[in-house]
């Protein structure tokens, strides 16, 4: 049924032209909103299934079995209240990391959307690995209750020159499964956000594809290893054909 809003809706995903019942929003639109919010909340609170993720990663004869680590935040409630704990490793996890000599360590963190990680982390990691032949890649790490900066401590303990954290971004109402990749050269605790490069909005609803994300991660990784830095001084001037990325998401801390 035409309500006069069809053409306007093509110009924006905003919830315009909602039905009215008195002054209230009509029930169909109320429930659509509640479903979007429920999906976003479920994504925030869903627990990452490390077994399924390890299995997805083992499809590829990559460099070893994933290492499972925990941040110092024991549960989701603490994680949400205490971003500082999500940036540090639990003591037993810190002791469990074998030191090596690696060019790149890939770390998969649940962040604020385990849904995003479960859907996109394995294919992005595998596609990125294929583009990084010739480099020494550490065994992948899966980190639970993780913030972006947890990759600093993990990368340092692994002895990696570059840490790449693949992490679930804060869910919005329209996209609850967006993955972000944060690259940090010379990872060590205390790195500032301005010392990282980010590839964000990796998702299937008009976001960056797995292959597109892998292209950019690999390009940035090689640049970082050549120049010996990441962050504001490393400008991304690779110009792949990008889809219209229409969600801006904050990094999960």
């Amino acid at each position: 049924m035409s309500d006069g809003w069809e053409r306007l809706r093509r110009a924006t995903r905003a919830r315009i032209g909602l039905g009215r019942s008195g002054e209230a929003v009509a029930i169909r639109d109320v429930l659509a909103f509640q479903m979007a919010h429920a999906q976003a909340r479920d994504a925030v609170h869903a627990a990452l299934d490390p077994g399924a993720l390890s299995e997805a990663l083992s499809d590829d004869p990559g460099p070893g079995v994933p290492l499972l680590l925990h941040s110092a935040a024991p549960d989701r409630g603490t994680y949400l209240r205490r971003p500082d704990l999500g940036r540090r490793l639990a003591a037993e996890s810190a002791a469990a990391i074998p030191r090596g000599e690696w060019d790149i360590a890939f770390i998969i963190g649940d962040g604020l959307s385990a849904t995003a990680v479960q859907r996109h982390a394995a294919p992005v990691l595998q596609a990125a690995r294929r583009r990084l032949h010739g480099l020494r890649l550490a065994p992948p790490v899966i980190a639970l209750q993780a913030r972006v900066a947890l990759g600093d401590e993990i990368g340092a303990r692994l002895g990696a020159r570059l840490a790449v954290m693949l992490i679930g971004e804060r869910p919005g109402l329209s996209v609850a499964d967006s993955l972000g990749a944060y690259l940090t050269f010379g990872p060590r605790p205390g790195r500032a956000d301005s010392e990282r490069n980010c590839v964000s909005n990796i998702h299937g609803a008009g976001g960056l594809s797995h292959a597109g994300a892998a292209d950019r991660i690999a390009w940035l990784a090689r640049q970082a290893l050549t120049l010996g830095l990441t962050g504001v001084a490393l400008k991304e001037d690779m110009q792949p054909a990008l889809p219209d990325v229409s969600a801006t998401l904050s990094p999960p801390g």
């Binding site: 924006t12 905003a14 315009i16 109402l173 969600a247």
Partner: peptide, 8 residues
Amino acid sequence: GADDIMLN
């Protein structure tokens, strides 16, 4: 609709 699609 209470949903800011830019600031999420």
